[in-house]
Structure formats: structure tokens, C-alpha cells
Design a protein around this nucleic acid. Sequence first.
DNA 1: AACTTGTACAACCGCTCGGCA
DNA 2: CTGCCGAGCGGTTGTACAAGT
Length: 359
Amino acid sequence: MGRAPCCDKANVKKGPWSPEEDAKLKSYIEKHGTGGNWIALPQKIGLKRCGKSCRLRWLNYLRPNLKHGGFSEEEDNIICSLYISIGSRWSVIAAQLPGRTDNDIKNYWNTRLKKKLLGKHRREPRNRGNYNVKQDSDVNNRGSSTEGDSSSLSLVQENTSSTHHQQQQQPCWSHNIHMPVLPLQVPLPYANQGPCFNDQDSIKKLLIKLGGRFSGDYYPPTLDGLNLQFSSDEQQIYQEQVHVGSSSACITSVNNNDVQFTQTGQYPGADNIVQGQGGNFTPSFEEMVPSSNYPDGLEFLYNEGIIDHKLIDSTTTTTTNWGETNTPIYHHNSLASNYQGQGVRQECALHEFSYPGAQ
DNA sequence: AACTTGTACAACCGCTCGGCA
DNA sequence: CTGCCGAGCGGTTGTACAAGT
């Protein structure tokens, strides 16, 4: 019992749009609008295209005032900070970047931005003492960005001393991501959600998923301390796939029902800062998250010091009880503040990103 | 020059959500 | 309340092109 197709697949054209098709669609929408019905639109125009395809073409390519390519450093940083805050909610992120589409941002993240960060993450030696890492020499870039300037994503790892047995993964946070002031322009309907992993299944799926995504030189994370109850099959899948030094969300789990997160950061825009509540980035975090369990796909941000844990202080750590609620886990300060007053529970971990450039 | 590999981006697919009857 | 349907979203795939061998 599958869902009925939105159009007759046999009679619709697929693949790249011709200039003629573009012209037809654009002129019609500019004259008449979409009419609120994308499905009927192609018939009206005489296009042999699926309505969804028309919508996508219009939104991602033909719509006026769209920018293509040439992402600025500021846009990079906004994307990074929002991704950290709300995850892969590209439409929400796109709403913060005028002229950008969700598809554009998603592609940009997947093809460049993530590799720019993750690639560096993988290449650099880890825990070998003091070393500096600059994000300005990535081979994936073809000279389109202005890298290496003071506003780029840069980080310096200075101190790798660790007293824990997970020294291999022990990050030393010293430098700061350069985050621009982010004036939110629209409500963020998902800002209260963040990556929600509020049950064991979610955690397990996440771990397994991450296991497939990362591979390399790092020790696999231990499940000790997470109190996740894996079936033997799940555990096998996990152990087969996970070869990471970091994974998953900031789990500081505690018992069978409760899993806690801690997360902080300092956001640069002073006007936007909403001070969180909380406590230190406690030893218990280090102990209970032996492999640095960080948000989905973002471990490198932490391990590379892009998110500066030195900044964590007694005012900024919060916990989330998974057993009770769908409480958000990762929040941007401004996102969180933006959503206050809407009846949304805000016992979230607020990021604070330092902003060295801000005076 | 020919082939292979890597990258960027456009487009598609399938799912979820919300409006409406 | 329920089911249908369209819009929207995010993940994935396809393709063109550049770079490397």
C-alpha cells in the first residue's frame, strides 16, 4: 500500500531543465503566481513536468533575488552556528540567509563546508602535543573563498594534557570560532527541538549511524556509562561500524531513563546573548562521555576546538532529561531566546561561542 | 589525448506535516 | 475523528565539468 504518485511518472519529463522550460515557468509565475497548486501548474503552462519539480525549479533556481555560490565567510559561520544549534534544518537556516535556498545551503554544507572542517579533522594528527591548525589550506577549496583571514574558521590546539584514559580523544579547547552577530529574522519553529534523542532507540540509531559515517584512526567509543541497552545484534552492528573517537550527542547519561546533555558556548553577538543556567563542564562529563559524544556529525567541531570548551563556566551548562520530555538539547542562545514566550520549555543547554573579533 | 577521479550542483525521491472535507 | 491530498523538507542520486594521471 504505497502512496499514490503525485503525477503520472510516465508522462513527465525528468532531468535538467531547458531554457525554454525555465522561461515558461518563470513568466507564468511572474504573471499569475503559483496559484497555490503546484500539481496543477505544469498542465496550465503546458510543461511536461511534475508539479514538485516545477516548485523545486522555481524555489531553487528561477525565483528572483537568488544568490548562487560565492558563500562568504560570514555565511559560512552562520551556517555552522545554526547547524550546531538546530541541526540539518536547512529551510530554517536558509531563512537566515537572504537569497539562499535550503537546497543550496544543504549542498554547500555537504560538499564543502563539512569537508572543509571534517577533512581537516581527519588529516590532522591528534594528541601529539601542541599544534596549530588553520582552516585555510583545504584542498577542496578552489580559491573561491577568502580563507585564512581573521574571520575564517580557525582553531588552535594548544594543550593536550589529559588525565583520563581517553587521552586519545581528549580535546583541548583553546581557540574560538568566529561567530558573527546573528540577527534572527524569522521565528524558528524548530529551534526548541534541536537534535532530539530522547529515547534509547534514538540514541542507538544515532550511534549506529555515526558509526557508518566516521571511520579512521580513532578508538571506538565505549558504551560504558551510557546505560544503553543494546540487543546483541545492535551491539554487533554498532561495534562493527563504529571506529570513531567521538560520536553522537553530548550524552552524560545516568540511569536507565535519564540521559543528560551538557553543552555550552559563547555567542558573539552581545545583544543576542542570553545567559544560560547551569554548572561547570564538569569532570563528570569527561568521565561519562569518554569518547566525547557530540552532536550528529559535529564531533570535529569540538575535537578541533571550533567550539571552545574553555569558555564553559558555571553559568552555562544545563541538562536535559530524556525520560521526561522532548526538551531540546542544543540551542543557540539567540534561537533559544527567540523562542521564549511561546510556551516552549527552555531548559536547554545554551551555546556560547566566543568571538575574538568582537570588541 | 585519453582515461580516471574528484567536486559541485541540480534534481529527484520519499517521507512528514498540516489543511480540509 | 479520520482519511486524503498537496506542500514542504531533508536525504540521496545523477550529471557535468575540472583536475589529475
